[in-house]
Amino acid sequence: MITHLKLFTTAVKQLFQPPLTVRWPEERRNYGDRMRGFIVNDRSKCISCQLCEAVCPAKAIKFHLEADGRRYPGIDWGRCILCGYCVDACPTGSLQHVNNTEIVWTDLDVYKKPSEMDPDDAAPLPATKSLI
């Protein structure tokens, strides 16, 4: 009996806590500057060494031919687990995380196709609600 009363009082107390839910996209969380977000490739630095493809544990990186006659890595975002191994493995520092985790694809093919993100699209969105 006492236990049940305690349970109820606990529940009633929790009723008046402010909600923790982030109402995305009206509210955004601030993840700090060192968030491992999406990955962009600076082609001027890339030497097509394929180390990133070899190290990727999720086999998300595939190389594709570009118009300038060279092959560049593209990420299948359906497989990528954002582990950051490719960024660490890259000898020239051309692969970099950007501080952005909120990208929306409206086309499944584009999402699945190994392709690069345009660095311009990857600008971090304004954060209005801090984490914790």
Binding site: Q14, L15, P19, R23
Partner: peptide, 13 residues
């Protein structure tokens, strides 16, 4: 609504 608020959510909104 009540269950959501106890669980620190918003519920129907």
């Amino acid at each position: 609504k009540l269950v959501a608020r106890v669980q620190w959510r918003y519920g129907p909104l």
